[in-house]
């Protein structure tokens, strides 16, 4: 028997089985009775400096969060957790982060390249551990440029207060408030002595420091962030190739 016959047989078999299924009257009642009036969801701008996690093997991020006793986050990238197999990572995301995370294989015209699920540690005063959570980091390639997607379950301890509106823009994308920001990051070696000006800049939320790099490095990263269905998302543009509109469009692909 030719393959076309197999195709026809699969088609006919599924048609026969599927078309014999009639929705029950009870389903109609269940669906219509449970459609409650919608409430528009308002999401406060939140932020967390996850994007700097990639610049060194282990970084403590200071000043990234500001509530509930959490003063920083620490993430250690384990190269053995990195995978370039999308299905493997998707399964890890479902099991370790949340089945509600929307993790696409493509983001705009960019294709998934590699990623991992890592454990992020919440730090309190004196670097004491206040617990951990799992986070997806996925890298996408677009003509050699790198886009990174982060996702983790909303945690009120982690989502700090809004850092003001300078350089930020909030747009409603498909009913969800998405925040765009272009932030200044400075990575410094362990033991680095911060100047008064640097501490003042941090206090004014003009710069975000991370500790653990080999030398002092400055970077500017653009990203969009939002919360949807109790999942926090970040899309970071490491190479600063995207206009804000393009980043909002990428967010819309996930929010849709």
């Amino acid at each position: 028997m030719k393959d076309n016959n197999l195709d026809q047989m699969i088609h006919d078999t599924l048609r026969t089985c599927g078309d014999a299924v009639e929705p029950s009257p009870a389903l109609r009642t269940r669906v219509l009775a449970n459609a409650e009036p919608r409430q528009k969801k308002h999401v406060s701008p939140f932020r967390r400096a996850v994007v700097v996690c990639a610049v060194a093997a282990a970084l403590a991020i200071t000043g990234a969060v500001a509530t509930s006793g959490v003063t920083g986050l620490r993430s250690a990238i384990s190269l053995n957790k990195m995978t370039d197999d999308y299905d493997t990572l998707a399964a890890q995301v479902e099991q370790q982060v949340s089945a509600d995370v929307i993790f696409p294989e493509t983001l705009g015209d960019a294709a998934f390249r590699k990623g991992y699920v890592d454990v992020v540690e919440k730090l309190g005063e004196n670097q004491t551990s206040l617990g951990t959570f799992h986070e997806l980091t996925a890298t996408y390639d677009l003509d050699g440029s790198r886009i990174e997607l982060n996702a983790y379950v909303f945690d009120p301890e982690v989502e700090g207060e809004a850092w003001g509106t300078d350089g930020k823009e909030v747009r409603e994308v498909n009913g969800v408030d998405v925040t765009y920001a272009l932030d200044h990051y400075r990575s410094v070696p362990v033991g680095y002595e911060f100047t008064e000006e640097e501490l003042a800049a941090e206090e004014a939320h003009e710069i975000i420091y991370s500790v653990g790099s080999d030398e002092v490095e400055d970077d500017w990263f653009a990203f969009v962030s939002w919360e949807q269905n109790d999942i926090c998302y970040f899309i970071a543009d490491y190479d600063n190739v995207f206009e804000p509109d393009a980043l909002f469009d990428l967010a819309a692909e996930i929010i849709q």
């Binding site: 299924v21 389903l27 669906v31 449970n34 849709q256």
Partner: peptide, 24 residues
């Protein structure tokens, strides 16, 4: 499964109702 299919269908319609604003 018919029953699981109906449960999924219910979830699908209700999510649609709640999230229809996201359909551009």
């Amino acid at each position: 499964s018919r029953q699981e299919g109906e449960d999924l269908a219910q979830e699908c319609f209700l999510r649609c109702w709640q999230q229809i604003g996201t359909l551009r």
